[in-house]
Design a binder for these strands. Sequence first.
DNA 1: GGTGCCCTGGCAAGCGGTTGCCAGACGGTG
DNA 2: CACCGTCTGGCAACCGCTTGCCAGGGCACC
Lengths: 364, 364
Amino acid sequence: MTDPTDPAESRPRTEPVAGRAPTIYDVARAAGVAPSTVSRAFARPGRINADTAERIRRVASALGYRANPSARALPTGRTSMLALVVADVANPFYSDIIRGVQVAATAAGYTMLLTDAEQSAAGEREVLDRAVSSADGVVLATSGISGAALRVIAGQRPVVVLNRAVPGVPCVVSDDPRGMRQAVAHLAGLGHRRITYLAGPQASWADGVRWDALVEAVRERGLDACRSGPYPPTVDGGAAAAPELAGRPTTAVIAYNDLMAIGLIRALAARGARLPEEVSVVGFDGILAAGLVTPALTTVAAPLRAMGRTAVGTLLDLVHGAPPAAGPPVRLPPELVVRASTARPGRSRPAWATASVPTSAGTG
Amino acid sequence: MTDPTDPAESRPRTEPVAGRAPTIYDVARAAGVAPSTVSRAFARPGRINADTAERIRRVASALGYRANPSARALPTGRTSMLALVVADVANPFYSDIIRGVQVAATAAGYTMLLTDAEQSAAGEREVLDRAVSSADGVVLATSGISGAALRVIAGQRPVVVLNRAVPGVPCVVSDDPRGMRQAVAHLAGLGHRRITYLAGPQASWADGVRWDALVEAVRERGLDACRSGPYPPTVDGGAAAAPELAGRPTTAVIAYNDLMAIGLIRALAARGARLPEEVSVVGFDGILAAGLVTPALTTVAAPLRAMGRTAVGTLLDLVHGAPPAAGPPVRLPPELVVRASTARPGRSRPAWATASVPTSAGTG
DNA sequence: GGTGCCCTGGCAAGCGGTTGCCAGACGGTG
DNA sequence: CACCGTCTGGCAACCGCTTGCCAGGGCACC
């Protein structure tokens, strides 16, 4: 095939694998010990004489031996795999969570299994089950999953829920009330008196938390809050809110998430609004794109990687037999990232609010 | 705990699991058949009498039986898992690839294992090995992986390489030359005569392909091409190119990827350039953020999901014993998405090119 | 010198499925 | 009625690794 003298092609294995992958039996035979000794040489460091272990290890690597994960999982019941279930793999919100989970899992010697929960309505249950049943534990980062499905999963494996508080299940969430207070403080400091919340899906746990937190934060400072929506938690959803917002006496909008905030910004700009002079917009989550749009979005950045990391840590404690510890959710502090989408409010009723777009009388 | 009369809480299982998860032995006993019959009832549809199979299935579901994946994998050697190895999970470029692979894998009854290849320089080999050895096949979507590592992996599992052409290994790539021709045609149509390529990492296979394709496409039309870089394939990398580009007589830039294009756009705008009147910018890849920046980025969108899907299809053929078919890579057509970042070139030397920024005489 | 403990390594019984082979039942043929 | 093929279901031998238990050797201590 290739030039046999090519140094890059020289076999790294002294003993070419004959047929199938070598097993502990092959190693045992080659090293002149029993298979159980080989097994222990890898699994129980101190259990075997150091010299013997070293010899075995050498022989094993010469043979190119790799433990068969399935065979190891069978007697022990541990697969060294963690399942991460997200609502939508392609949603940028999950990118950093995936990253955090991945890094933490790897560091702990686990492999990550990734599953989309809502991609296929039909086989979802089935898919989930398969992923879950081959993992030692599950990190659930999906708002849409039903309580029933969650209970089923929690019944078979250690589970940590990310980004939602579920009673009786360990949870890791961003401290949204805190983030909201920061956002409101920021807007108040700029001089805004009335803040509109651009609501996401009502089914979302975080949506309720954020709205409540806004109401509370606004009350503390004697400001006003009002709510618009719900809209889909997407760019288009945010854009769809522009006409309705135009009819409202508000100078500042806090959106359910960055995607909506971005959609809103773009739609307002398209209507001729000057941003951020006429409207300040704040997002939630801190996705990559938030820093790239114009004006760059001020956002309450959730500590996504830390959340992933923490979730894995908690999960591994559970896997290793820690008590379920059904306390309150672990709250990680978000960080308000101030960018260009927020500024002092303009004096007068902005032009865009009454622009030529034929807006129907605001619904909702 | 909860109200026992709550219908949602009624036990779905007639036989509560006693201790551990039920096995085929439990099902066999309950159904009055042999374990092998239970196994066949699930694995060999026609092999068992239809009535018997139905009864077994009923009993199994009543018991809440789920096959143990490890136990199944041990004798068959098939884990029903596919590994996807990417360079950086959080890079938006991979989002849609992950999505495509995930969907295709799920549809085929496989579970997806996700691994970051370059996150940890140290244990990388180890991590990779573990992921790979518990999957039936591997989709490699990482430009940085060494040829040696690739060969090692290819030696143990069916492998499909995504987004790079490697001789002797089945590959799925975007048809960059075609995309480049479209981009050049678009720019030429707008009246641009000289196109600058903003180069990404030299180690990247795609970078070479894109540059060569640009040279070729430009030659066909009698235009000029020049090259700037290399720069890191990131937003900052693209931004870093702005000063150098300012010194060049070019009205159009095609960047190695969208992130760089976005960085460039932002940096140029920050220097006071009016876009797209003064410079047209085209990206590659078609990531989400490309459509969100201002001006929205014209880009050669790779068919990322289709690539993921195709890679999985090819891989599964291999897994199911198809011949390696070491032909040329499968090329999937990208699509030029025309947005606002490209326009007719301005008449005169743009102001920003000689702006107040103290540019050193262009290097490279 | 005897006793008991520790260290080391081997034996063998699983873990939960899969599957080749066999045997009994049954029905159709000659 | 004997014979044979097909259909069903059971038996048992794996797949590769883990681990409880045991045994022999070496050593220390009494």
